[in-house]
Amino acid sequence: MTKRSTTHATFVIERDYAHAPAKVFAAYADPKKKARWFGGPDEWESAHSMDFRVGGKETSTGGPPGGVVHKMSGEYWDIVENERIVMSYEMHLGETRISVSLGTTEIRPSANGATLVYTEQGIYLDGYDDAAAREHGAGELLNQLEAFLNAEA
């Protein structure tokens, strides 16, 4: 039995994309587009579903073949078209809840296209995960988003 503990941390990642804010927003809002860039490594078996509206839910499950299942269960709390998306989400490893987070994606016009600022306020539970690993993972997702946007152009 793991002793109960919580660790609280906030991180901010800023990216500049050579794509218009509306195009960046669409990569989050359109389920088919989001499924293309949001998720684990290609070799994972995965599933994704989302209902992009305030109060709507999103789930993404995946993991290495035969390995432990990573599950993200999220809910949308605020959506301003082309500008802001606020989502809370829980991460489970198998049956164990390892974190609860509040993530804000802000999109603003920039000289180059769009500046994206992602802020995640997180609670990491019982020593299973930490903010540094989560920030690394969030950065990887934003790399995948950029690759998707570039390929879509």
Binding site: T6, V54, W77, R97, L102, I123
Partner: peptide
């Protein structure tokens, strides 16, 4: 309510609205 551990821990997400306009979203433990 995201997580409830009886007598130990409660984790929840909440929003505040004024006349239907959302002005904050929070994560609390």
């Amino acid at each position: 309510f995201n997580e409830i551990v009886d007598n130990e821990r409660i984790i929840f997400t909440y929003s505040m609205d004024r006349d239907g306009a959302r002005f904050s979203v929070s994560l609390a433990s």
